[in-house]
Every structure is written in structure tokens, then in C-alpha cells.
Design a binder for these strands. Structure first.
Lengths: 192, 192
DNA sequence: ATCCTTATCAACATGAATGTCAATAAGAGA
DNA sequence: TCTCTTATTGACATTCATGTTGATAAGGAT
């Protein structure tokens, strides 16, 4: 028979394992899967352990969503910093927002009012300002630039949330769906 | 003192009151506010009454989401049936999807996998086909038309979910935000 | 080896949500 | 007025998630 050997992780290992499991459950079951009992069971530990490391369910949620938010911001910054040609800024923003469930994260944050938004202390506003500056520098009206950013951001979010079902409803083949970002990028040029 | 007189509603009245309260709580607290105890308390009745009329929490949710889905489809059909000029089809679709929390409804349905989608038994696909036909009839490539529909639908959803926060992050004034749909409609023309 | 920190867990207590049941009363029809 | 249907409710049982506590053991330090 099996002697129940007790595993002992470092605090960092434990937190990483827990957050990894929580992220998996979030994408599978939605926000309602983000509870201590479910996550602890899925991670193969007792729920008391999770509470020991995070303190409460709310704190665990907060930690996961903050981690995801930081990943999102990091990706956005990455997509913009490596001297991207100005005419590719919107394309990069779109691709980033529609990747890795970033759009879904934003939706969860926006749809659930009781989630405290772990916004990057205002530097996100500066981020958008940079994007708009980049577009405007290439020539064009400032309001037009803002509208373009808004269009790209909202479209990327919508696509990230239910792009699959929408594509099949509309009757887009897989190849066509894959070509959509390129189409959008090309036509954003003509918008200027 | 007040003799607690017991109100007696018709089944339809009761169901309408419950669903109305549930809708209010849904928009205020998100999906987690859609439980029997909260709704019954907000509606001023015992939770046993809600169970009597709907049977279970899941059934109540189902009823509400189905009602909202029907309202959404009805609005979309309405926006298209009244001999809309073809060049206004996309504009109408956008306005409809970004109104009345329709986009948020679609997000909830898409984000929460355990919600059985009360889809309109495939007639939604026909609906989109009509839209695309209308655009293509006015002249234009079919794939382009599909892309336009996808862009409009996703943007409307994204705007409906977090248009407010995004607008302020981007630095759009209220007047500018209000002008966005018109801007999009005008520039959709140039996409053809 | 021995000690010490602490990650882990079982057991308990608590509270909230769900669903059941029998009793009550409101209103319609005879 | 009387009867019958049933909407409504309080009380109860059950399940589940949360958080606490004391005990245990894993692993590093001395």
C-alpha cells in the first residue's frame, strides 16, 4: 500500500503551482471555477494549504488576475517597444490583445464589478498615449487615431471572446479566419 | 402595526417580476448575482417562491438568458427587416449589438461554458447570411463582406463590454465617444 | 543527530445557498 | 357562502465553500 508521503514545496513553488492550476480552471470553467475548494482539489492539495499561501479566495483571485494583467501589459509593451514601424503599431496591438486570452481577461475584469482592477497605476493611459502619438506622428488627425485604436482594441477583444462561434456563424473557413488580422491591417492603412 | 398581507400574483406576473429583478441584478453584480437567494430577496419574496416558479437556479438563469437572447435576435431582425438600405446594414448591426447590454449578454454566454446556449436553432446563421447577401448585392467580394461583418460584430461586442473604460484610457471625450459609431459607418464605406 | 521553522493536512465550526415539505391564505368559480 | 386550486411562506435538511486550529512532518541549519 501507499504511504502518503507529504510533499513539501517552497512557498514560490506552491504559489506557482496554485496559480497555474487556477489559470487552467479559469479558462475552463470561468470565474465560478476560481474558488479555493476547486483549485485545491485540482492541484492535489488540501484547501487549507491554499488558504495558508494566499489568505483567502479573494486574495487568490486577485493574485491570479494581477499576474495575468502584468503579462498582458508586458506583452503590449513588448509589441510596441522593439522599434515597430508606425504603420504596424495597430497591427501589433490587435495581435497582442487577441492572443493568449488577453481579451478574455479584460472581459472578466470588465464584466465582474466586484473585481478590483489591478490596473498598472495609470501607466496604461501613458501606453495608449504612446500608441496614439506614434500614429499621429506618421501623419493624421488625432481623433481619427483615437478612433482607430478604439476600433482595434474592441475588435480584438470581441474576437478573443467569441471569435470562433462568430466565424462559424458568418461562414468563414479556417483559412479565412486566419487571414482576418492581415485584412484588417491592410484596410487600416486606407482609413488614414 | 402592519399585518403582513400576503401578495398573490398570477404565475405570469410572478415570473415577469422575478426575471426583471434577475436582469437588474445580472447587470449590477454579474453572473454571480444570478442566484435564487439574492434575486428573491431583491424581489421581496421568499426563495421558495422562486423555486416554485422556475424549479431551480439553473432553470431561472436559463429562462432569463433565453429571454435576453430572444430580445437580441428580435432587435437584430428588426434592424434589418425594415427595408434598410444595404449601405446601412452594417451600421444597424453595430448599433444593435452595442445597445442594451446585448454585447454583454453574448460575452456571458461565450465566457461561461456551463451556460447552455439557447441559440435560435440555426436561424441565426441564416440571419448572417442575409446580412452578407445584402452587402454583396451592393457589389463587392464575398470574403470582404464576411470580414466586414466580423469586424463590426466583434467591435460592437468589445465596445459594449468595456467601451467606457477604454474610451477614457484612450482619452476620448464623451462627444468623441458618441461620434465613434458614425465614424465607423463612414469609414466602412471606404472599405468596399 | 538535534533543533527549528513552516508547509501541509485532518478535523471542526460557521455561514450561505439550495431544495423539500407541509401549512396558510388569496382569489376564482360554483 | 362554500369549495377548490395554488401561489406563498416558514421551517427543516442537505450540501458546499470558507476559514480556523492544532497536530504532523519535511527539510534546512547548527
Amino acid at each position: 500500500m501507499n504511504v502518503n508521503k507529504r510533499v513539501r514545496r517552497t512557498p514560490d513553488e506552491a504559489k506557482h503551482l496554485i496559480l497555474k492550476t487556477a489559470a487552467s480552471r479559469l479558462s475552463e470553467f470561468g470565474l465560478e471555477g476560481l474558488n479555493i475548494s476547486g483549485v485545491s482539489k485540482a492541484a492535489g492539495m488540501s484547501h487549507a494549504t491554499v488558504i495558508h499561501h494566499f489568505g483567502s479566495t479573494a486574495a487568490m483571485r486577485q493574485a491570479l488576475l494581477q499576474q495575468m494583467t502584468e503579462a498582458l501589459l508586458s506583452d503590449v509593451v513588448l509589441a510596441l517597444n522593439k522599434d515597430v514601424p508606425p504603420d504596424q503599431v495597430l497591427n501589433g496591438l490587435f495581435k497582442t490583445l487577441s492572443q493568449d486570452g488577453h481579451g478574455r481577461l479584460l472581459s472578466w475584469l470588465a464584466l465582474d464589478h466586484n473585481l478590483e482592477v489591478a490596473s498598472g497605476e495609470g501607466n496604461t493611459a501613458g501606453l495608449f498615449k504612446n500608441i496614439i502619438d506614434a500614429i499621429t506622428d506618421a501623419g493624421g488627425d488625432r481623433t481619427d487615431a483615437k478612433f482607430q485604436v478604439l476600433l482595434v482594441a474592441t475588435a480584438a477583444m470581441g474576437l478573443s471572446i467569441c471569435g470562433g462561434p462568430l466565424s462559424s456563424l458568418i461562414g468563414l473557413s479556417d483559412e479565412e479566419s486566419a487571414a482576418f488580422p492581415r485584412w484588417l491591417a491592410e484596410h487600416l492603412e486606407t482609413l488614414k
